[in-house]
Amino acid sequence: MDKEKTLAAFAALSQASRLDAFRLLVQAGPKGMAAGEISDALGVKQNTMSANLSVLFQAGLVRNLREGRSIRYFADMEGLRGLLTFLMEDCCGGEPDLCRPVLDSIACEC
């Protein structure tokens, strides 16, 4: 990920409903969630959530899959990995042991 894509990702996550939706999709894991399920879970109007999901999609943080008349959304873990990699690529001045606590705290234990 480059600087411009990183800025787009942060801009997408800088709105409360989009951040909540992204976190919900991370929690949902590989099964993802239908757009209506996301809006219901977060108490956000469907058209508003659709616009928010579009912003997250354009920023490379979510991916989608059409299922008939519905669209299922998933957290794009490659996009998240790119964001985190960009932020930490020059971590700790060449002393990787200093980065270990950060990496351990974000590692999935599932």
Results as ranks from 00 to 15, higher is better:
Ala35Glu: 09
Leu24Ile: 03
Val55Ala: 14
Asp104Tyr: 00
Leu7Glu: 15
Leu53Trp: 04
Ala75Glu: 11
Ala51Tyr: 05
Asp97His: 02
Gly60Val: 01
Arg100Ile: 10
Val26Asp: 05
Ala35Gly: 08
Gly36Val: 06
Cys110Lys: 15
Asp20Arg: 11
Leu56Phe: 08
Pro101Leu: 03
Asp90Pro: 00
Asp104Gln: 09
Asn64Asp: 05
Glu37Leu: 07
Leu7Gly: 07
Arg18Val: 07
Asp40Ser: 15
Cys110Phe: 00
Gln15Lys: 12
Ile71Thr: 13
Ser54Tyr: 02
Gly93Leu: 04
Pro30Ala: 07
Gly93His: 02
Cys110His: 13
Arg100Tyr: 02
Ala21Arg: 05
Phe57Gln: 13
Asp40Arg: 13
Ala34Phe: 11
Leu53Gly: 04
Ala12Gly: 11
Val55Leu: 10
Phe86Asn: 15
Glu37Gln: 15
Asn47Cys: 02
Phe22Trp: 15
Leu42Glu: 06
Val44Thr: 14
Thr48His: 05
Asn64Arg: 11
Gly68Gln: 10
Cys92Pro: 04
Ser105Glu: 12
Gly43Arg: 03
Arg23Thr: 11
Gln58Arg: 08
Ser70Gln: 13
Lys3Glu: 15
Val26His: 14
Ala8Lys: 10
Gly29Lys: 06
Leu98Ile: 06
Ile71Val: 15
Phe86Cys: 09
Pro101Thr: 05
Gly29Arg: 11
Ala59Leu: 02
Gly36Asn: 12
Leu53Asn: 03
Leu53Pro: 03
Phe22Gln: 11
Met1Leu: 08
Glu78Asn: 11
Asp2Trp: 00
Pro101Arg: 03
Asp2Val: 00
Leu61Lys: 12
Gln27Gly: 07
Val55Ile: 14
Arg100Asp: 04
Glu89Val: 08
Ala59Arg: 04
Asn52Leu: 02
Gly36Met: 11
Arg81Asn: 14
Ser54Ile: 04
Asp20Met: 06
Ala41Gly: 06
Leu98Pro: 01
Gly79Arg: 07
Leu19Gly: 09
Leu25Thr: 10
Ala9Phe: 01
Glu109Leu: 05
Ala16Pro: 12
Leu53Ser: 04
Ser50Glu: 06
Ser50Gln: 08
Asn52Lys: 06
Val102Cys: 06
Cys99Leu: 09
